[in-house]
Design a protein around this nucleic acid. Structure first.
Length: 269
DNA sequence: AGGGCAACCCGGACGC
DNA sequence: TGCGTCCGGGTTGCCC
């Protein structure tokens, strides 16, 4: 499901195609996806512009010229697509934001949402999120301080949004693999050098995934060749039984805290 | 604090 | 082709 690198990729691609374009029509086919009455939501967008797009954790924030914003969380299976006159997608569309020459459609929003908020509401909604792992202030020292208070499993803690924002089921496995650490290890069992390795792996895995466009398979628009480039680079996620990239042993799958978890028992310790 | 678990939600994949 | 069934999984909240 969309995690930090996927949302960052969406952000970068949407900046070029959505910001600055006048919204000429809005369609809401599923009221549960939004947080206001449909008419209110539509009126807040129609005729206005998205002036900026930011990412926080797995959220995207569409800043409107009116001062309000849209907070997006795709949750499980949520996707976006940009349609135009010659290219449409045959999926159920929960929300459609139309511009003059193209449409931004939201599909697969089940638990996902698009909330219309003012600054204060936005701040409140995001207040429980942990640090951004790729921001400069996320230093090794800060990570060591956060880790110091933790005793839980790497897997469970890495996907906890209050610990670090943006890491989900796929990248937590990939990060543990890159760090050569078993996801079932606990933080209080880590040597100092292992904490450092984990910190470096968080950075390198997320950065590489962003560079390659994340692992989501559906392109954002027809000519989009960036999105999904990381799919082939996943070393363990969803690769049960396949040979480990490093040592050739078969990748194992196990449920850890009711989540699918993939790792190599031979070269992760 | 951490682990376990149920509830939320429904499109789409899959089986017949 | 068509219909019914069931699964996935991030997040929240509750209990132990």
């Amino acid at each position: 499901m969309p995690e930090l690198p996927e949302m960052e990729t969406y952000k970068n691609l949407l900046q070029l195609r959505v910001t600055g374009h006048k919204i000429v029509n809005v369609e809401v086919n599923r009221e549960k996806s939004i947080n206001t009455a449909t008419k209110l939501f539509i009126d807040a967008l129609n005729g206005n512009k998205i002036v900026d797009i930011q990412r926080r954790g797995k959220h995207l924030i569409f800043q409107l010229d009116t001062g309000k914003c849209l907070l997006l969380h795709l949750m499980l299976g949520g996707l976006m697509y940009i349609e135009n006159d010659t290219d449409t997608i045959s999926r159920t569309k929960q929300v459609i934001i139309s511009f003059n020459s193209h449409k931004l459609v939201f599909i697969g929003l089940r638990l996902g949402y698009l909330h219309l908020l003012d600054d204060k509401q936005l701040k409140d909604e995001l207040s429980d999120l942990g640090p951004e792992p790729l921001k400069e202030d996320f230093t090794l020292l800060l990570f060591e301080q956060l880790v110091d208070k933790k005793r839980g499993k790497l897997k469970t803690t890495l996907v906890n949004q209050e610990f670090i924002a943006g890491i989900g089921n796929c990248y937590s496995d990939e990060i543990c693999y890159a760090a050569e650490l078993l996801p079932s290890r606990t933080f209080d069992s880590l040597e100092h050098s292992e904490v450092q390795k984990l910190y470096n792996s968080i950075q390198s895995v997320l950065k590489e995934a962003i560079q390659l466009g994340g692992y989501i398979e559906l392109p954002l628009f027809k000519e989009d060749k960036l999105t999904g480039g990381y799919n082939d680079h996943c070393k363990v996620y969803d690769r049960e039984g396949e040979k480990c990239n490093r040592c050739g042993h078969p990748i194992k799958k196990e449920i850890i805290s009711s989540r699918k978890c993939f790792f190599c028992t031979n070269c992760q310790f």
